[in-house]
Write a protein that binds this DNA or RNA. Structure first.
Length: 877
RNA sequence: GGGAGUUUAGCUCAGCUGGUUCAGAGCACCUGCCUUACAAGCAGGGGGUCACUGGUUCGAGUCCAGUAAUUCCCACCA
């Protein structure tokens, strides 16, 4: 089949994706083959494709396609995450557009809207992945909130509760006043924020609630919380304040009496050395309060507004109140001064609201034991992290894992399976029926109406940590007695996980914990951490900066293959990748190169009985060897997850070696035919090259592969086998490199026209060239005929009509040459001495592995040979 | 404040156990070519004191220490 003049990805890509789907090429069932399994890092169900997804899923797809071509049973499970906070925010925002407030809806009504939204948008990102060429087994698509997976989450909660690892307790949590929920520490981002440091005067009380003339000064950034103060705290070693021991002071404006206490926490030289203690609204203050048994007074409500307990400024937002109270304090004479101050402030990762420390009752999961075994899985090497540097990060976190706050004050998510009895006690069961049964065991008179289920839902990660298990068998988590089904038994543990390092704790670590707990095995063997996609200037891709290109627009413009290649070109594991559109252009150019090279080859007239020229014979021999060597190299790169190196090796093999050298060498002269033997070899090489490239560029390779021959219906390059490296004659390849150098040299000189037609051509080359390669040199360098062989000093040949001579060692000046050789000889002798010293070191011999010693011996032998050669050449000079 | 990483050509990065194909790749750049597959191309070319200082060694991008710059993670002093 003949190809059109230009490659048009738009025409090709949809066609082949539909073809693959139709022929169920992505589908996988357990069978006798070795499985290769990947579960997708589930994107947010309402999300849209961004460059991070492109990077991640391209890598996943390359790995899965490679495994498939290696003959493994490749299974890539796709799916989406319900992403409770993010999705709920979007739903709330969308309702707001329609003038509907979440507060005005019942839980059921809200969830109905949310599910509608999910149905409407939930499939978008998965559709977009198809555009990218992702070869997921779509029949297995899962959603973290579908009934079976939600049941798994519920069962898990019950399991850990009954095991005593989940508890309900008061804690200072990070409250997001916009999303109206507690969030975990990990979801808080701290940013240095400009604020003010207010120095306030608290008068000492006379004991009856009246101010004396004496006062102390505290420094605070949050004057609006003074009404919730429970004490003033100083360092016990601070002599300045010893006189205040046992005294009480009055809170400005409201004149409430609070004690002066002492605690080591206070630093004497920070601020004024006096700290106002506000247990309800600051995590540290809470701890001090616990130590000193201070009362807790909450003056902020869930919106971040002041409530009645504040007594003043009631109903005002915390920031508004802050502004207002300053004036009031000044008027009352309590304000000493205001300093500019930059302090780190916590913001919600999702809503960007300033986090309010808030005391509330939440559910927690104890992580200590889980973390210990999960750490062991990585330390022991059962799971490999790539790159290795993340082991340190991982260890550090695991050793300091604190309890995981798993409840969220949201509606979108798995509702916590805890039911409260009228007497305040709680039962935790998987279903309302079981809960009622359990409740009746406590009080037989209870009915279903007496039970009140906890209003909160579980953290999203509490469902995604089960993902590698629940996508195969959702009955297993929380039910150790349940025998894994066929899928779980076959596909678990999965092979590789590709994800960003930003969710190493949120997700990766917790999957390892869940795997250990429920499967007694790791969830995956290797974790490949990608970098974060940044723009050319190193900035994070973000909507506000507008520096994030829409991948679909790029695919439209350049084709998915080009986008994939462009993404991979600059992505080594763990390094941030600086994306630039020129890389995608490079991908497009490569597509063009592949396309045109097949147009060339397929256009040749073949003479089956033609005699193979000597240059063609050698060219075929050369490329065959080179192909073998490169295949081995590529395999090695894949094994080490060096995807971009594998790609680059293939890219160069195709472009530089196959197109620029091989095809030029075997290309028949104008009007002539190519001999059948060379043609078959050329097509065979092309076929192997396509297969090597297919994991990275699935569409164009499929298109050309089909153009190469009549394929059976349903046949696909996807299921062809990865080319296997044959034997490789390194010496021959090295010789060919020499020939290439000569050719390049000749071309360079001809191009630059630095030689007068009759002058001998001079250039420096090294080593000898075997006679076999003369025809290659003759053809590629445009030499009409060889005159002489290598005569020890020079290669002679004719360029056009000019006789040329190429000296083998430098040019001119034997004295200079002599000095060079002598210096080299000196160096070699030193080197030899060094190697011999090592070889005579008994400690080295005892400790070093056999292979290392062998390398040293080889070095010794090589050095000896070199010395000999140098001495010989010294004599001839 | 604690920890981890990075620093090699204009840009992005390889460089695995120290050695002689170790100073590399891709892109960009310069020169010449519309040569009958491809100008999104072909051919040729220039370019780096391997951050700095010291140490170990016969020998150091490579190992060690210090300095500087920079990135990320953890913590968060009110």
């Amino acid at each position: 089949m003949e190809l059109k003049k230009n490659y048009n990805p738009a025409e090709v890509e949809d066609k082949w994706y539909a073809y693959w789907l139709k022929n169920r090429c992505f589908h996988s069932e357990p069978d006798s083959r070795e499985p290769y399994t990947i579960v997708i890092p589930p994107p947010n169900v309402t999300g849209i494709l961004h460059m991070g997804h492109v990077l991640n899923n391209t890598l996943n797809d390359v790995l899965i396609r490679k495994a498939r071509m290696d003959g493994k049973n490749a299974c890539w499970v796709p799916g989406t995450d319900h992403a409770s906070i993010a999705t709920e925010n979007k739903v709330v925002a969308r309702l707001a557009e329609r003038g509907i407030k979440k507060e005005d809806l019942t839980r059921e009504e809200f969830l109905k809207y949310a599910w509608e939204w999910k149905e409407e948008h939930g499939g978008i990102i998965l559709q977009q992945l198809r555009k990218l060429g992702a070869s997921c087994d779509w029949d297995r698509t899962k959603f973290t909130m579908e009934p079976a997976l939600s049941d798994a989450v519920t069962a898990t909660f019950v399991y850990f509760y009954k095991k005593g690892l989940i508890y309900h307790g008061y804690r200072m949590v990070n409250w997001d006043p916009v999303a109206h929920t507690a969030i975990s520490d990990d979801e808080v981002v701290h940013r240095d924020t400009k604020s003010h440091f207010y120095h306030l005067r608290y008068y000492i009380s006379d004991g009856n609630g009246n101010p004396t003339k004496d006062f102390l000064v505290i420094a605070t950034t949050r004057p609006e919380t003074i009404m919730a103060d429970a004490a003033i705290c100083v360092n016990p070693a601070d002599e300045r304040y010893h006189s205040l021991r046992g005294k009480k002071v009055l809170i400005p404006l409201i004149n409430r009496e609070i004690p002066v206490i002492e605690d080591d926490y206070v630093e004497m030289d920070f601020g004024t050395g006096c700290l106002k203690v506000t247990p309800a609204h600051d995590a540290h203050d809470y701890e001090i309060g616990q130590r000193h048994d201070l009362p807790i007074l909450e003056i902020l409500d869930d919106d971040g507004r002041l409530n009645e307990k504040a007594r003043i400024l009631v109903g005002q937002d915390r920031f508004e109140a802050r502004k207002n109270i300053v004036g009031m304090l000044e008027e009352a004479g309590n304000l000493v001064k205001i300093e500019e101050y930059i302090s780190p402030v916590g913001y919600s990762e999702r809503t960007d609201a300033v986090i309010e420390p808030k005391l509330s009752k939440q559910w927690f999961l104890k992580l200590e034991g889980l973390a210990k075994s999960a750490l062991e899985a990585v330390e022991s090497g059962s799971i490999k992290l790539i790159p290795d540097k993340y082991r340190n990060v991982y260890r550090h976190w695991m050793e300091n894992a604190h309890d995981w706050c798993i409840s969220r004050q949201l509606w979108w998510g798995q509702r916590i399976p805890a039911w409260y009895l009228p007497d305040g006690s709680v039962v935790v069961e998987e279903t309302p029926e079981q809960a009622l049964k359990a409740a009746r065991a406590i009080n037989p008179a209870l009915t279903a109406a007496d039970l009140r289920q906890d209003e909160d839902v579980l953290d999203t990660w509490f469902s995604s940590w089960l993902w590698p298990i629940s996508v195969f068998d959702a009955k297993r988590p929380g039910h150790p007695e349940h025998k894994p089904n066929r899928d779980l038994g076959y596909y678990y543990p999965t092979s590789d996980l590709v994800t960003g390092p930003d969710i190493i704790f949120f997700w990766v670590a917790r999957m390892i914990m869940a795997g250990g707990e429920f499967m007694n095995d790791v969830p995956f063997r290797n974790v490949y951490f990608t970098g974060i996609v940044r723009d050319k200037l190193g900035r994070k891709m973000s909507k506000t900066l507008g520096n994030s290109p829409d991948p679909l627009v790029l695919i439209e413009k350049y084709g998915a293959d080009s986008v994939r290649l462009g993404m991979l070109l600059c992505s080594s594991a763990g390094n941030d990748i600086l994306y630039d559109e020129s890389q995608v252009e490079q991908g497009r150019n490569f597509c063009g190169k592949i396309w045109n090279s097949w147009r060339l080859v397929s256009g040749w007239r073949v003479d089956e009985n033609g005699r193979q020229s000597e240059s063609s014979r050698v060219a075929v021999k050369w490329f065959d060897n080179l192909l073998s060597r490169t295949i081995a190299t590529v395999e090695d790169h894949y094994r080490k997850f060096r995807i971009n190196d594998a790609l680059m090796a293939t890219y160069k093999l195709f472009w530089d070696d196959y197109c620029s050298w091989y095809l030029e060498l075997v290309k028949p002269a104008w009007g002539e035919a190519i001999d059948g033997y060379t043609f078959d070899a050329t097509v065979g090489f092309f076929d192997k090259l396509l297969k090597l490239i297919h994991p990275v560029m699935p569409f164009i390779t499929e298109e050309i592969w089909h153009a190469m021959a009549d394929r059976r219906p349903g046949e696909t390059i996807m299921y062809e086998r990865t080319p296997v490296a044959g034997p490789c004659d390194e010496a021959f390849l090295a010789g060919f490199e020499q020939a290439r150098q000569i050719i390049t040299g000749v071309r360079g000189i001809r191009a630059q026209k630095q030689i007068a037609p009759k002058d001998p051509l001079k250039l420096s080359i090294e080593g000898e060239v075997s006679e076999e390669l003369y025809p290659i040199i003759a053809k590629a360098a445009g030499i009409s005929g060889f005159v002489g062989a290598v005569d020890g000093a020079a290669v002679s040949f004719i360029v056009g009509t000019v006789k040329c001579s190429v000296p083998l060692e430098g040019l001119v000046d034997t004295a200079q040459e002599r000095a060079k050789v002598e210096a080299e000889l000196e160096h070699q002798r030193k080197f030899l001495a060094g190697v011999r010293a090592k070889l005579s070191n008994e400690g080295f011999l005892a400790r070093a592995p056999e292979a290392v010693v062998a390398v040293e011996r080889k070095k010794e032998a090589d050095a000896l040979a070199r010395i000999e050669a140098l001495e010989a050449s010294l004599k001839t000079l």
